[in-house]
């Protein structure tokens, strides 16, 4: 099957690559660009470990084809980390031990960041609901909810 030349922005850098149509976005990021912070957990859209930002919205990297991203903007955990934009959330995860093996963490952070971007202090139930598509086998979720809630409180305090 014909490879397609695509041009997209990944973490602020322009990338031009030839991809097979069947290559998913997460495989493209990991295998072609070496951005291994996005993880493959189920490849059928349930575990959420592959979640990345496409044009600013968090999407499943396994349910998006790389070829579809031609002309679009992708941001991964590597980009979100280096920009410093989620540093407070990462620090909260670290100090609260809201990760154990860390495999779900990059996607969990991006998903939580999307909720926090909405502002305010969401209830624990609302945080749980927003993260309900991101599987974590290690923590039991409680620490993750604590970390997200703590950041929401600090951010709300800082803006009020």
């Amino acid at each position: 099957m014909t490879a397609h030349e695509i041009t997209l922005t990944v973490n602020g850098e322009e990338v031009r690559e030839a991809v097979e149509p069947r290559t998913t976005l997460v495989d493209f990021l990991r295998d072609t660009l070496g951005l291994t912070g996005s993880h493959v957990g189920c490849e059928h859209g349930v575990c959420g470990a592959c979640s990345v930002r496409l044009d600013g919205a968090v999407v499943r990297g396994c349910l998006t084809l790389a070829v579809q991203c031609d002309g679009h903007k992708v941001e991964t955990i590597e980009g979100a980390s280096d920009s410093g934009a989620i540093a407070d959330l990462q620090e909260a995860f670290r100090t609260r031990n809201a990760l154990q093996c860390g495999y779900c963490t990059p996607a969990m952070l991006l998903t939580a960041a999307e909720l926090l971007a909405g502002g305010g202090v969401p209830s624990r139930a609302a945080i749980r609901e927003h993260l309900s598509g991101n599987y974590c086998r290690c923590t039991g979720y409680h620490a993750i909810i604590d970390a997200v809630e703590a950041v929401a409180r600090v951010r709300a305090g800082a803006t009020s």
Partner: peptide, 20 residues
């Protein structure tokens, strides 16, 4: 806090599935 967590929160872990 665990020493390896900052690395993992930045997507800078090295799992076997990452090894090339």
């Amino acid at each position: 806090a665990r020493p390896n967590l900052a690395r993992l929160t930045q997507g800078r872990g090295q799992y076997v599935s990452d090894v090339v």
